[in-house]
Design a protein around this nucleic acid. Structure first.
Lengths: 224, 224, 224, 224
DNA sequence: CATGAATGAGTTTTCATTCAT
DNA sequence: GATGAATGAAAACTCATTCAT
């Protein structure tokens, strides 16, 4: 279109402004992702690709260009969830006494999850191995160590226990948030009670083997 | 028909057991139900009616004759689950000290659920209102009262808390049984720890309102 | 086979009380037919054989024993319609002046059809060749002849014309009876007007050929 | 590629007519519609969506993309019928003396309906409210007024009467066209006779109420 | 004979995915 | 790259008809 005799004018355009397209593409990706989150919030994983496309204001072909599969799209929906998890860990570490940070984290995760309304709990299953996920574990571990040192956490509670606790908690929130949006709080307190030190606790942590098998399998329930 | 060795024994049989037909039908019903449980075990609620029919060795029309709807079939799958729950409550009550019965019940439910392998946890949601379900609640309540009296249970722990705990536990078992069939045990211990009395416990139970809303809603997570 | 020690005792029974069975069978037939008329009234030809059986209080096998096919049942439903037609012809002939009988007949048929509420119009199509049907034609013809002689009917109006008129009329009643149960009356008057003599009428009747083809074909629209 | 005689004319075409895609789609739509009309002609409304797809040479999904429901497809089949009706009204108005136009219209509708062979009569019932339908009424009314003024139509004949007459006529044609494709002509003449003025006519038109109920109900039998 | 259980082809409709434009 | 038309494999459910009891 810029060359007078050029037939493949689209291509020529692409060459002239290479980032223009990339920019548009990125914008489209974001719009699709936002739309997907929206429909996921409404229908859960039963949403339709066409619905996502319509909500994003793009053609369905565009959705498939960015996310070659519905599964891929679901994973992309799940990613920010882990990003948020990491930021919550840091928020807990920064804004609270070390003795409190572990408990604060758990409360934070639950509270935000309930407030958000997206049943992302179901998304944990995506076999997602993103760098961000790997970083969560150690930082949570640090929180727990501090709490243990401060004597506010049962010494035998491991990072894995907390992972499972958070999965359980978010599952419960997902399952009850619609009809009884506060009932999880009671359960949260019970669980936190279980984490506090007391003379009677002597259970031994889950076997390392069991845990590794769980982590390596898909779907996984683990944090990082 | 007149001689005892008469060849037309079918007729004689028909007379002897006038519900022969119903008997065959009942047998088919069982086969369908068994097949359904089997495919549910494999695919979860996403199973196909046709698959059930094939597995049962009957036509698809037969499946629909017994269970006019996929939902009806799902409920039929769920029913024995609640029946088993009730029998487990009684088993716990009969075979253990009152002080221990509550804990025994929880262990029993979890253990059997894990052994069974069917992800019946997902079935709690069926809006099933069968007499059997109504009977579970009071009997569990009795167990808890005894444990409370014996001082082996935190006094503020209600029947509702136990309901949610069991739902959580079975969900966890469902989610991990394939890959890490023992990890739920650790979590069970943690949860049981949380139920034991200790100086620090002072959380108040979930509000009656919240609970009623949850119970009346469908899907429900409650025991009875 | 007829020996006293015969195993096929049913047969023996049948022999002992031959009309007993026949009597029961006839009763069943009637019940099925009545039920079929009932469901036809409600659902039109879209009714279900099972519904008929249930309404009749018999098993579906019994329905099929009496009417080997849904079509056969439909035809059986249609039969009394023709019987009634014949009786209406006679009623018209007996209770009115010859000059009026033709018009009376048409009014009678329409009125009863509307009052009955069964959309039997759709049933004319059954390729029903019952003796009763053959008798209708000549008797109607006689009525028309009398009316022609009395000068109250256009001389070129044939029995066939009346047949088609009645088909048309009942179809209209069927189609409008639910929502506008009187509108057919206006149309009836228009049609009757068209049958009365007037200077201008000179159309020639339908060709005999056309008519015969129609009569011999199925579905047919003719009276007898 | 850029030369005017280039073989890859599609691309060039695509540029020239940017609605090429829509054009193809439209072509497919027409093919589906034509196929639907064809199968409707053969089986009536009992046709199968799959049959339509096969006949149109497209996948069944394509049929559903254009007509999201079988009902929608039926309505689409019915639409041209009404369009044709309107054009016939105009044709009658333009090509004949005002005194004759009403009769010409009725003859035209019947003749074309018979020639077409599609039993569209059954389609009048579709609760179709398309602009075209609204325009038919007034134009027919005008024809009737002219005929009334010219003394060729009974003064009490209303637009509604003609509507019902045409419904009746097309129903008759539908019912007889296969086996006796001319018999409706006789009936047409009888009906037309009924419309002509004569000293004896004094029936009053259908009550306005009855008519309105009929028009507002669905399925409707009315023209516009 | 009566029963009703069994059958399975057939129907409408949905939706992830591909591909021509 | 974007678009949305096309695809067709399922899936849930229906119902006329057969046949064992």
């Amino acid at each position: 279109m810029n060359g007078p005799t050029d037939g493949t004018s689209d291509h020529a355009d692409a060459k002239d402004r290479p980032d223009r397209l990339r920019c548009d593409a990125a914008r489209n990706r974001e719009r699709v992702l936002a739309a997907a989150l929206e429909v996921y919030r409404e229908h859960g994983p039963a949403f339709t690709m066409e619905e996502v496309a319509a909500r994003a204001g793009v053609g369905i072909g565009t959705v498939y260009r960015r996310f070659p599969t519905k599964t891929a799209l679901l994973e992309a929906i799940a990613l920010p969830f882990f990003e948020r998890m990491l930021s919550q860990v840091r928020e807990a570490a920064e804004n609270s006494e070390p003795a409190e940070a572990a408990e604060v984290l758990i409360r934070l995760v639950a509270e935000r999850h309930a407030a958000d309304g997206v049943r992302t709990g179901r998304l944990w299953g995506s076999a997602l191995s993103h760098p961000v996920r790997a970083r969560i574990g150690p930082e949570v571990e640090a929180l727990l160590a501090a709490a243990r040192a401060a004597g506010t956490l049962r010494p035998d509670i491991t990072y894995e226990d907390v992972s499972v606790l958070l999965w359980t908690l978010t599952s419960l929130i997902d399952a009850t948030n619609d009809v009884s949006p506060n009932i999880w709080r009671r359960y949260l307190e019970l669980a936190l009670d279980g984490l506090r030190p007391s003379p009677a606790n002597s259970t031994s942590p889950a076997s390392r083997d069991d845990w590794l098998r769980l982590v390596s399998a898909s779907p996984v329930l683990t944090l990082g």
